[in-house]
Design a protein around this nucleic acid. Structure first.
Lengths: 217, 217
DNA sequence: ATTCGATTTTATGTATACAATTATACACCG
DNA sequence: CGGTGTATAATTGTATACATAAAATCGAAT
């Protein structure tokens, strides 16, 4: 018998709003009032308020006297996020290599194969999902709660920019190759190498994003 | 005329519960029910729920079918936190050195002087507060929201262990001296040096904590 | 026409009422 | 005596009602 875990409305509202803000459905500066959200989402203020408080804690919105102002992720935020990831994602890869189980290794292998598959089909949206799964899998496999809790939201917040970055075929091909190299290092138990490779991978992604999104001169 | 910003009950409840959990008033494993908190804190369930959702997001509590289980900060969490801080607090110091204003420099100088003052008086609690203010000031002076938002909660979560760590007079003296060296580097505009010094400072603090709290052999 | 002030509107903050779910206790049956 | 099922109690999830504060509106006076 399968277990159906019912997700609370508050959680659903949070996930929807977080995603919508990150990808830009609600642009920076827009004011969200509880009443409007009640109408749009069809739930009462209670779960909406709980979601808003969490978004506020993530600095995706700011509370003002009247309504919540959407902040979203600016290019400056993006650069900071990538610098932070560059500094600590190596830690995650290191611990993941040390703590990975055979099942988890298999899962990571599958993600890599799916990447190849979707690359053939040029399915950008799925490829972004695979990027999500690859990185988040490493966070979780590390079994370090604090590292996981720190990196996961940061990675989610880059979604909008990653989606565009993947559009560059050269960068996409490089990224997939880098994932493979990281996977190989992890599967061979080379923790230091995995750490170095993922750090370089993030730096490459960062540089590509800066080149693409940050006006220069 | 002074401006009185009224803090909402929800915020007050969050701050009190967060602090109580971090310092161990509520031990790991204890179950907090909304009704109990209503009685203890004298406010209704609405603000309490909003606070609990935020604590959950910080993984200080975990939601269970009946009540919220206190997780708090374990020694393993502490080690992860210090490793992360070691990796990114240098970034904060670097940006802070680049972006500091004269007023902010003066504030930092005052914190350092107060440290000497309270060290003379051996006022451990105030010294911990000064440690808070010194580090948080650097986060904020960096003017990097993401860095700030990442480091501030991590630093808060070390409070309980720092309080004990400060009890070791040798470590305390070293820590204050390290703060001074960091301050000097910042005031002289040496961003790279400030970054290196604060990284070393965190590593020293981490090693001291590991030695003190992590059972060895 | 502009400014000041009162009134109204709008939105949030808080409390409470109601619904649904889950654990617990206890009786009944094997 | 142990297990199972039902009733009950406890607790959360959600909605709504009420209180309060801030902003907008409108009118009157200068």
């Amino acid at each position: 018998m399968r277990e159906f875990k019912t997700v609370s409305l508050a959680d659903q509202v949070f996930e929807k709003l977080e995603s919508d803000i990150i990808v830009g459905v609600y642009p920076r500066g827009e004011v969200l009032t509880e009443l409007k959200l009640v109408e749009n989402l069809g739930v009462s203020r209670t779960p909406i308020r709980e979601a808003l408080r969490r978004l506020e804690q993530e600095r995706l919105i700011a509370d003002s006297a009247k309504g919540s102002v959407v902040l979203g992720i600016t290019v400056d935020d993006l650069i900071d996020i990538m610098e932070i990831r560059q500094s600590i994602e190596g830690l995650a890869a290191y611990h993941a290599t040390k703590n990975i189980t055979p099942d988890e290794l298999e899962e990571l292998r599958q993600i890599n194969e799916l990447q190849d598959f979707y690359y053939e089909k040029k399915d950008i949206e799925r490829l972004r999902q695979m990027d999500d799964r690859f990185h988040v899998a490493i966070y979780e496999i590390s079994k370090r709660n604090v590292i996981c809790d720190t990196l996961r939201p940061l990675h989610r917040k880059t979604q909008r920019y990653r989606r565009q970055s993947i559009g560059d075929d050269q960068r996409l091909a490089n990224s997939i190759a880098e994932h493979k190299a990281i996977f190989n290092a992890i599967s061979e138990g080379k923790a230091e190498l995995a750490s170095q490779l993922i750090t370089q991978h993030i730096e490459n992604a960062k540089n590509h994003m800066i080149e693409r999104f940050h006006y220069h001169g």
